[in-house]
Computed example of a mutant assay.
Amino acid sequence: MIITCYQCTSDMEEVRTDVFKCPFCGYQVRQLSLSPEITQADIEAAAANDIGKGHVVERVKRYNWPIEEAITETVRKHEKHGNWPEIAEKNDIAKHTYYARVKSGWSHERAATDKVDKKKTPYSKRGVTQC
């Protein structure tokens, strides 16, 4: 396929199957018509596999997945913390405190179960007392 540069009217080189670049002026263009069409049957097959339409469209259009793989590969669930934030709230530990503790290297269990030391407030650390 020959595509002519919009700026200098010379023939463009194919960088990838959907990207063309002019060797003279450096102008790049992406051809969007090469992406495969997603049919209603594909959407229904994905729904049967518990994959939403948005995931299928993003996988095919944005990440260039084959349609067959986009409708069959399960969506990863990120359960990094499990139910530890809820346990922390039951122990009167705020969620943001729990997340800050885990981010600073605490284990999930310790971050969710160690009580908050009320004496260590930001004001007492700076030597200022609360009124």
Score class of each variant (00 low, 15 high):
121 T>F: 15
41 A>L: 08
76 R>F: 13
82 G>Q: 01
128 V>T: 09
108 H>A: 12
125 K>A: 11
75 V>M: 09
98 Y>V: 00
109 E>S: 02
58 E>L: 13
76 R>Q: 12
74 T>H: 11
51 I>W: 15
57 V>T: 12
110 R>W: 10
64 N>M: 01
84 W>M: 10
117 D>K: 06
5 C>R: 04
40 Q>M: 00
89 E>L: 11
7 Q>P: 00
120 K>R: 10
92 D>L: 09
68 E>I: 13
7 Q>L: 09
112 A>H: 09
98 Y>D: 05
120 K>Q: 13
30 R>V: 14
84 W>V: 05
102 V>P: 00
121 T>C: 11
27 Y>H: 11
127 G>Y: 14
6 Y>S: 10
8 C>A: 14
97 T>N: 05
75 V>I: 11
127 G>H: 08
60 V>W: 02
117 D>Q: 07
105 G>S: 05
79 E>Y: 10
124 S>A: 14
96 H>W: 12
94 A>I: 05
8 C>H: 05
12 M>Q: 09
115 K>W: 04
86 E>L: 13
86 E>N: 06
30 R>K: 10
29 V>L: 13
97 T>V: 14
88 A>N: 07
65 W>V: 01
34 L>H: 08
2 I>K: 05
51 I>V: 09
90 K>F: 13
100 A>Q: 06
74 T>N: 03
121 T>N: 09
127 G>E: 15
75 V>P: 09
65 W>T: 04
82 G>Y: 08
113 T>G: 02
129 T>S: 14
10 S>G: 13
22 C>S: 10
74 T>V: 09
1 M>N: 06
81 H>G: 01
105 G>P: 00
45 A>N: 05
97 T>A: 03
81 H>A: 11
62 R>V: 00
36 P>R: 04
25 C>M: 11
60 V>T: 02
49 N>D: 08
97 T>E: 02
66 P>K: 05
1 M>Q: 11
91 N>S: 08
51 I>R: 10
44 E>A: 14
84 W>G: 02
128 V>D: 13
75 V>E: 10
131 C>W: 15
32 L>A: 09
11 D>I: 15
78 H>D: 15
27 Y>V: 14
112 A>K: 01
102 V>Y: 03
21 K>Q: 12
30 R>W: 15
28 Q>F: 15
17 T>W: 01
25 C>P: 02
61 K>D: 01
96 H>Y: 07
84 W>R: 01
47 A>V: 04
54 G>C: 05
127 G>T: 10
123 Y>M: 12
11 D>G: 07
24 F>C: 10
37 E>V: 10
